[in-house]
């Protein structure tokens, strides 16, 4: 039980420490940290509109985190959520722009296309790894650039809004937008899809045989091979799903938030997703909570910028510090382990 409580305690101490250091910085600027945080909090949760804005950000962030977590549970490091998001957004946009039909059907098809597009982009990484032994960290980063330039080409060429010089498509007709679920706010059905995705992830990991098999691969691929579990198949499957959830995030971002495809729309959501996964310990409930926190800091940061003399980069700083402290926690655990092994001198 000690272990379980420390699992919750560690992220919380990281968050507290980050806010403590953040307070120091705010004091150095000559402002009052408490009132700044109050502004930030009300910016994130002060009204139903603010809460909705936070949860909309949470949706994209958490799905992007889920992408990282899915690969991580199979022992893979997916830095490519950003590129997979772009491809998902592109696939969904193409469906909306070229597929006639009733709104809800097109939206469902667009979401599916987004998932599939991201999944194939992720699968590519899996294939390169299984077939040629290419390190997935390198290939995912490279494919991020490829995806980014592909979008740039698309929105400056074939699917550019003909009436505009901006690198973007036309605004989608509102029948193809994701439904708003809270009257008067921008909270859309994507939020529910995100929760469903997390539930699916939890069930897959802990209730199904393939999920159990994938976790064995993730923790010890030699043992997996020995036990008759194919490391190759699981690598492909995990990268497919990881890419799929990132692609879904991209599709939701265009269908629910931007309502058009535009250059640079997913910038940094992919990397913030890694932060969500790290802080949430790759656990569905943990990632939901950390997604809300990081979403809140994004929307609260805007309020800080507008209503105080503290620059919003201080909020970015606190966000970064949270991650640094989480990593230090992880690192110190690794170091402690090493020390223990060195200290255990005689194994008799």
């Amino acid at each position: 039980m000690i272990k379980k409580s420390s699992k919750v305690l560690e992220p919380i101490t990281s968050i507290l420490l980050a806010f403590l250091v953040g307070s120091l910085v705010i004091v150095l600027i000559g402002e009052d940290p408490l009132s700044t945080f109050r502004v930030m909090f009300s910016g994130a949760f002060g009204s139903s509109v603010n809460i909705s804005n936070t949860l909309v950000k949470t949706t994209t962030l958490t799905l992007s985190g889920l992408s990282y977590a899915f690969a991580f549970r199979c022992g893979l490091i997916n830095i490519g959520a950003e590129g997979q998001m772009y491809i998902g957004a592109l696939s969904a946009s193409v469906v909306v722009l070229f597929m006639p039909g009733p709104g809800f059907l097109v939206v469902i098809l667009a979401l599916l296309a987004g998932f599939l597009g991201g999944a194939i982009w992720g699968l590519l990484v899996g294939v390169l790894k299984v077939r040629f032994g290419a390190n997935e960290v390198i290939t995912t980063v490279m494919l991020n650039y490829a995806a980014q330039y592909l979008i740039q080409w698309a929105v400056c060429g074939p699917i550019q809004d003909p009436n505009s010089n901006a690198a973007q498509t036309v605004m989608f007709e509102d029948t193809y937008w994701m439904h708003y679920i809270l009257p008067g706010t921008k909270l859309h059905t994507g939020f529910l899809l995100m929760i469903l995705s997390l539930v699916f992830f939890g069930i897959f990991l802990w209730k199904t045989a393939p999920g159990f098999g994938m976790q064995i691969v993730g923790q010890n691929n030699q043992a997996a091979a020995y036990a008759g579990i194919s490391v190759q198949k699981n690598t492909l499957m995990a990268m497919f799903m990881a890419g799929g959830f990132a692609g879904l995030a991209g599709a939701i971002e265009v269908l629910g938030v931007q309502h058009r495809l535009l250059k640079g729309m997913a910038s940094n959501f992919g990397f913030d997703g890694i932060a969500v996964a790290l802080l949430g310990a790759n656990h569905p409930v943990g990632m939901f909570l950390s997604g809300i926190l990081l979403g809140a800091m994004k929307s609260g940061g805007n309020a800080v910028q507008m209503f105080t003399r503290v620059p919003s980069s201080v909020v970015d700083l606190i966000r970064a510090l949270v991650i640094v402290f989480v990593l230090i926690n992880v690192l110190s655990k690794v170091l402690l382990q090493v020390k223990k092994e060195k200290g255990a001198t005689i194994h008799g």
Partner: peptide
Amino acid sequence: QGMGVVMKMPIRNNLVLDTFY
């Protein structure tokens, strides 16, 4: 330790490592 068991997994899981399916 490198192949026969997954060290961080519960004993229960390791007892069905190659039979759970």
